[in-house]
Protein backbone atom coordinates (compact mmCIF):
# COMPACT_ATOMS: atom_id res chain seq x y z
CA UNK A 1 0.00 0.00 0.00
CA UNK A 2 2.79 2.37 1.00
CA UNK A 3 4.63 1.58 -2.25
CA UNK A 4 1.51 2.28 -4.34
CA UNK A 5 1.06 5.67 -2.64
CA UNK A 6 4.72 6.56 -3.26
CA UNK A 7 4.55 5.51 -6.93
CA UNK A 8 1.28 7.40 -7.45
CA UNK A 9 2.63 10.54 -5.80
CA UNK A 10 5.81 10.36 -7.90
CA UNK A 11 3.79 9.97 -11.09
CA UNK A 12 1.54 12.91 -10.19
CA UNK A 13 4.56 15.09 -9.40
CA UNK A 14 6.29 14.07 -12.65
CA UNK A 15 3.15 14.88 -14.64
CA UNK A 16 2.84 18.32 -13.01
CA UNK A 17 6.55 18.91 -13.65
CA UNK A 18 6.15 17.88 -17.31
CA UNK A 19 3.13 20.19 -17.81
CA UNK A 20 4.99 23.10 -16.23
CA UNK A 21 8.10 22.43 -18.36
CA UNK A 22 5.96 22.38 -21.49
CA UNK A 23 4.21 25.64 -20.59
CA UNK A 24 7.52 27.44 -19.82
CA UNK A 25 9.12 26.27 -23.05
CA UNK A 26 6.13 26.82 -25.35
CA UNK A 27 6.30 30.65 -25.18
CA UNK A 28 7.61 31.98 -28.47
CA UNK A 29 9.24 35.22 -27.45
CA UNK A 30 12.64 34.44 -28.89
CA UNK A 31 14.06 35.12 -32.37
CA UNK A 32 13.29 32.86 -35.30
CA UNK A 33 16.33 31.69 -37.22
CA UNK A 34 16.17 32.01 -41.01
CA UNK A 35 18.97 30.39 -43.03
CA UNK A 36 19.94 31.40 -46.55
CA UNK A 37 22.35 30.03 -49.11
CA UNK A 38 25.33 31.74 -50.60
CA UNK A 39 24.61 33.59 -53.87
CA UNK A 40 21.10 34.36 -52.62
CA UNK A 41 20.20 38.02 -52.23
CA UNK A 42 18.95 38.36 -48.67
CA UNK A 43 16.78 41.34 -47.69
CA UNK A 44 17.35 42.50 -44.15
CA UNK A 45 13.86 44.12 -43.89
CA UNK A 46 12.91 45.23 -40.38
CA UNK A 47 15.42 43.00 -38.63
CA UNK A 48 18.28 44.41 -36.61
CA UNK A 49 21.07 43.54 -34.19
CA UNK A 50 20.35 45.74 -31.17
CA UNK A 51 17.58 48.20 -32.00
CA UNK A 52 15.36 49.26 -34.88
CA UNK A 53 17.21 52.59 -35.01
CA UNK A 54 19.77 50.69 -37.07
CA UNK A 55 17.21 51.09 -39.88
CA UNK A 56 18.41 48.50 -42.40
CA UNK A 57 15.02 48.07 -44.06
CA UNK A 58 15.52 48.06 -47.84
CA UNK A 59 19.11 46.86 -47.68
CA UNK A 60 20.17 43.51 -49.05
CA UNK A 61 23.25 41.31 -48.70
CA UNK A 62 24.60 38.84 -51.24
CA UNK A 63 27.68 36.71 -50.56
CA UNK A 64 29.75 36.28 -53.68
CA UNK A 65 32.82 34.44 -52.50
CA UNK A 66 35.04 33.63 -49.54
CA UNK A 67 38.82 33.43 -49.36
CA UNK A 68 41.19 32.12 -46.74
CA UNK A 69 44.75 33.42 -46.36
CA UNK A 70 47.44 32.62 -43.87
CA UNK A 71 48.50 35.80 -42.09
CA UNK A 72 51.80 35.84 -44.04
CA UNK A 73 50.01 35.41 -47.37
CA UNK A 74 47.63 38.21 -46.46
CA UNK A 75 50.49 40.52 -45.47
CA UNK A 76 52.38 39.74 -48.68
CA UNK A 77 49.34 40.29 -50.87
CA UNK A 78 48.32 43.60 -49.31
CA UNK A 79 51.81 44.90 -48.52
CA UNK A 80 51.50 44.94 -44.74
CA UNK A 81 54.90 45.56 -43.15
CA UNK A 82 53.92 45.81 -39.49
CA UNK A 83 55.08 42.50 -37.94
CA UNK A 84 52.93 42.89 -34.83
CA UNK A 85 49.72 43.23 -36.81
CA UNK A 86 47.49 40.10 -36.79
CA UNK A 87 49.92 38.30 -34.46
CA UNK A 88 46.92 36.83 -32.62
CA UNK A 89 45.70 35.02 -35.73
CA UNK A 90 46.80 32.18 -37.96
CA UNK A 91 44.52 33.02 -40.87
CA UNK A 92 42.45 35.85 -42.29
CA UNK A 93 39.07 34.76 -43.63
CA UNK A 94 37.60 37.17 -46.17
CA UNK A 95 33.93 37.28 -47.09
CA UNK A 96 33.25 39.08 -50.36
CA UNK A 97 29.78 40.58 -50.26
CA UNK A 98 27.59 42.93 -52.22
CA UNK A 99 25.26 45.25 -50.30
CA UNK A 100 22.35 46.87 -52.08
CA UNK A 101 19.82 49.55 -51.19
CA UNK A 102 16.33 48.94 -52.60
CA UNK A 103 14.22 51.71 -51.18
CA UNK A 104 15.75 52.83 -47.90
CA UNK A 105 15.51 56.61 -47.96
CA UNK A 106 16.84 57.34 -44.48
CA UNK A 107 20.20 58.42 -45.85
CA UNK A 108 22.92 58.46 -43.20
CA UNK A 109 20.36 57.76 -40.48
CA UNK A 110 20.04 54.21 -41.78
CA UNK A 111 22.53 51.79 -43.25
CA UNK A 112 24.82 48.94 -42.44
CA UNK A 113 27.13 48.66 -39.43
CA UNK A 114 29.66 45.91 -40.14
CA UNK A 115 30.91 46.27 -36.58
CA UNK A 116 27.90 44.16 -35.58
CA UNK A 117 28.47 41.42 -38.15
CA UNK A 118 29.39 37.99 -36.85
CA UNK A 119 30.61 34.76 -38.36
CA UNK A 120 29.41 31.74 -36.46
CA UNK A 121 30.20 28.05 -36.61
CA UNK A 122 28.62 26.02 -33.80
CA UNK A 123 30.51 27.15 -30.66
CA UNK A 124 32.79 29.49 -32.63
CA UNK A 125 31.96 33.13 -33.27
CA UNK A 126 34.01 36.13 -34.29
CA UNK A 127 33.53 39.76 -35.21
CA UNK A 128 35.08 41.77 -38.06
CA UNK A 129 38.87 42.33 -37.90
CA UNK A 130 39.01 46.13 -38.03
CA UNK A 131 42.64 46.58 -39.12
CA UNK A 132 42.28 44.09 -41.97
CA UNK A 133 39.00 45.76 -42.95
CA UNK A 134 40.71 49.11 -43.16
CA UNK A 135 43.50 47.66 -45.34
CA UNK A 136 41.07 45.86 -47.66
CA UNK A 137 38.59 48.70 -48.06
CA UNK A 138 40.86 51.73 -48.24
CA UNK A 139 40.14 53.03 -44.76
CA UNK A 140 36.37 53.21 -45.26
CA UNK A 141 34.38 53.16 -41.99
CA UNK A 142 32.59 50.03 -40.84
CA UNK A 143 29.29 51.88 -40.86
CA UNK A 144 28.02 53.05 -44.22
CA UNK A 145 24.86 54.07 -46.06
CA UNK A 146 24.04 53.66 -49.74
CA UNK A 147 22.07 55.75 -52.15
CA UNK A 148 18.71 54.34 -53.17
CA UNK A 149 19.02 51.69 -55.91
CA UNK A 150 22.77 51.34 -55.64
CA UNK A 151 25.15 48.48 -54.90
CA UNK A 152 28.44 48.32 -53.03
CA UNK A 153 31.02 45.51 -53.18
CA UNK A 154 32.98 45.03 -50.02
CA UNK A 155 35.41 42.58 -48.40
CA UNK A 156 34.68 41.66 -44.79
CA UNK A 157 37.69 40.10 -43.02
CA UNK A 158 37.68 37.93 -39.89
CA UNK A 159 40.78 36.94 -37.92
CA UNK A 160 40.98 33.18 -37.38
CA UNK A 161 42.94 31.49 -34.64
CA UNK A 162 43.28 27.72 -35.12
CA UNK A 163 43.04 27.25 -31.38
CA UNK A 164 39.37 28.22 -31.57
CA UNK A 165 38.27 26.61 -34.79
CA UNK A 166 39.36 23.84 -37.12
CA UNK A 167 40.14 25.31 -40.56
CA UNK A 168 38.42 22.38 -42.34
CA UNK A 169 35.25 23.02 -40.38
CA UNK A 170 35.48 26.74 -41.22
CA UNK A 171 35.73 26.12 -44.95
CA UNK A 172 33.35 23.19 -45.45
CA UNK A 173 30.05 25.00 -45.49
CA UNK A 174 29.14 25.10 -41.79
CA UNK A 175 30.19 28.68 -41.20
CA UNK A 176 27.49 31.33 -41.28
CA UNK A 177 27.49 35.09 -41.59
CA UNK A 178 24.92 36.62 -39.23
CA UNK A 179 23.29 39.70 -40.75
CA UNK A 180 20.62 40.32 -38.10
CA UNK A 181 19.69 38.97 -34.67
CA UNK A 182 16.13 40.10 -33.99
CA UNK A 183 13.15 39.56 -34.53
CA UNK A 184 14.64 37.17 -37.11
CA UNK A 185 18.13 35.85 -36.81
CA UNK A 186 19.21 35.79 -40.44
CA UNK A 187 22.24 33.72 -41.32
CA UNK A 188 23.90 33.11 -44.66
CA UNK A 189 25.82 29.87 -45.11
CA UNK A 190 29.28 30.69 -46.42
Amino acid sequence: MKRIIIISLTMILMTIYGIRLYSVNSKKDYPITLSFDRDEEVYIENDFFNSCSEDMDGYSVKIKDTELFTVDEFKDKYGVTDEELFSLYDHIFIVKATFGNHGNKSGEQGGIDLGEYIIQNSSFMNIVERDAYSILNGGNPLRFSLKNNSYYDIMIPFGINERFIDIDSLCKGKTKLIISLYPHKKEITL
Binding site: K27, S122, S123, F164, K185
Partner: peptide, 19 residues
Protein backbone atom coordinates in the same frame (compact mmCIF):
# COMPACT_ATOMS: atom_id res chain seq x y z
CA UNK B 1 13.29 29.60 -17.11
CA UNK B 2 13.14 28.11 -20.62
CA UNK B 3 15.46 25.27 -21.61
CA UNK B 4 16.65 27.32 -24.57
CA UNK B 5 19.66 26.11 -26.50
CA UNK B 6 22.57 28.54 -25.99
CA UNK B 7 23.56 30.52 -29.07
CA UNK B 8 27.28 31.23 -29.49
CA UNK B 9 26.44 34.62 -31.03
CA UNK B 10 25.89 35.66 -27.39
CA UNK B 11 28.72 33.58 -25.91
CA UNK B 12 29.90 36.23 -23.45
CA UNK B 13 26.63 35.75 -21.57
CA UNK B 14 27.23 32.01 -21.20
CA UNK B 15 30.91 32.07 -20.25
CA UNK B 16 31.58 29.09 -22.53
CA UNK B 17 33.76 29.89 -25.54
CA UNK B 18 34.85 27.90 -28.57
CA UNK B 19 38.28 27.36 -27.02
Amino acid sequence: IPLRKPDSAYDIYFGVFSS
